[in-house]
């Protein structure tokens, strides 16, 4: 327990102090996206890494949050904070309702169903032009305000987004180390045995699905207010796959791994700007290589690799002596 607390404190400290080391609007802006992606990846990881249920439609919840917040606060002049709260609750409720039929499905079927759901939502973003602005997007979304403070610069947005991320990570770590988190992992490992122990697998899966959707919706709201503009391509199937890649690369069932995955997959394309079109090839290759050679993700794979290398050295040393 104490170990978890220290890990979290170090993580939070790094986040808070990062702007002292990294500066410049461009980098701050990229780090804002790392934050939003971390929230999304952590949300998906709760579902996929802990409860073992795949979703290929999580970009839809992200998009619903973004469009919901954008439309309510712009077209209908709602207070943005109120809009964010209402949208998060509505998306969570929606996911809860759809969760019952959808999570009855397993494995490949679940993947296909969530994928279908994601595409339907994406099509609605594109086609419901009167409300969403259609393919050309929805603009003029106001920045968030807190009293006299307007979140209109990259540095301010950095602290805005990352305070949400820190909250989200803390809650997720708490949850993961509680009876509920254990029940998720039990469902993942041996569902029938978990049910025999009194774990209501069906309800818990739906609950985590709803929670995960809710976190995505909040990330979406933040995204809308930070960008002040949203358009359908940010919420398509490719984004769902990108999220999946982050979770898999970081490590299934590791909250900090999701941060690592989000960091890597957000920074890399920025550094690899010159090979712009190659990024899709890169994602595909990365997904395959990771699944085959490092199924535990970086958080488990790197230490394993390290152990192997040092193990080899020791063996060699032993042979010498």
């Amino acid at each position: 327990m104490k170990k978890e607390l220290i890990k979290y404190a170090v993580f939070a400290l790094c986040i808070l102090l990062a702007p002292l080391v990294f500066s410049g609007n461009y980098l701050m802006n990229v780090l804002v996206f790392v934050g939003i992606h971390t929230m999304l990846a952590v949300a998906l990881n709760l579902l996929l890494g802990y409860a073992g249920q795949i979703s290929l439609g999580h970009a839809a919840f992200f998009g619903l949050g973004a469009y919901g917040s954008g439309i309510l606060s712009t077209t209908y002049n709602w207070n943005p904070w109120l809009a964010m709260t209402v949208v998060a609750l509505v998306v969570g409720g929606l996911a809860f309702a759809i969760g019952f039929p959808i999570l009855k499905l397993k494995g490949h079927y679940l993947a296909m169903a969530t994928l279908g759901m994601g595409i339907i939502v994406y099509i609605v973003f594109n086609e419901w032009v009167a409300i969403t602005g259609g393919p050309s997007g929805f603009s003029g979304i106001p920045n968030l305000e807190l009293g006299p403070l307007v979140f209109d610069s990259d540095l301010k947005n950095y602290y805005l987004v990352w305070s949400f991320v820190l909250g989200c990570v803390l809650l997720s770590v708490n949850l993961a180390n509680s009876r509920i988190g254990r029940a998720f992992r039990a469902i993942h490992d041996a569902e029938v045995a978990a049910r025999v122990m009194g774990v209501n697998a069906r309800l818990l899966k739906v609950q985590v699905f709803a929670l995960s959707a809710m976190i995505c919706a909040i990330a979406g709201s933040l995204y809308a207010h930070v960008m002040t503009f949203v358009a359908p391509p940010s919420f398509g199937f490719n984004i769902s796959v990108e999220l999946l890649t982050m979770v898999v690369i970081g490590g299934l069932g590791s909250i900090y791994g999701s941060f690592l995955g989000a960091l890597l997959l957000t920074l890399l394309p920025e550094f690899l700007r010159f090979m712009h079109d190659y990024d899709i090839v890169f994602y595909g290759g990365l997904l395959m290589v990771m699944t085959i050679f490092m199924p535990g993700g970086l958080v488990r794979g790197i230490p394993d690799l390290f152990r192997k290398i040092t193990g080899l050295k020791n063996k060699k040393g032993g042979a010498h002596a």
Binding site: L48, G52, I54, L56, K106, G107, H108, A111, V241, L244, V248, D277, Y278, I280, V281, F282, Y283, G284, G285, L286, L287, M288, T291, I292, P295
Partner: peptide, 26 residues
């Protein structure tokens, strides 16, 4: 991956599909 979980298999075929698509684009 013969004895992998359905999730790994879903992920690997998605990875494959993206790779094939990306290479074709290039």
């Amino acid at each position: 991956l013969r004895k992998a979980s359905p999730i790994s298999l879903v992920i690997i075929t998605i990875g494959g599909s993206i790779l094939i698509r990306g290479l074709s684009m290039l």
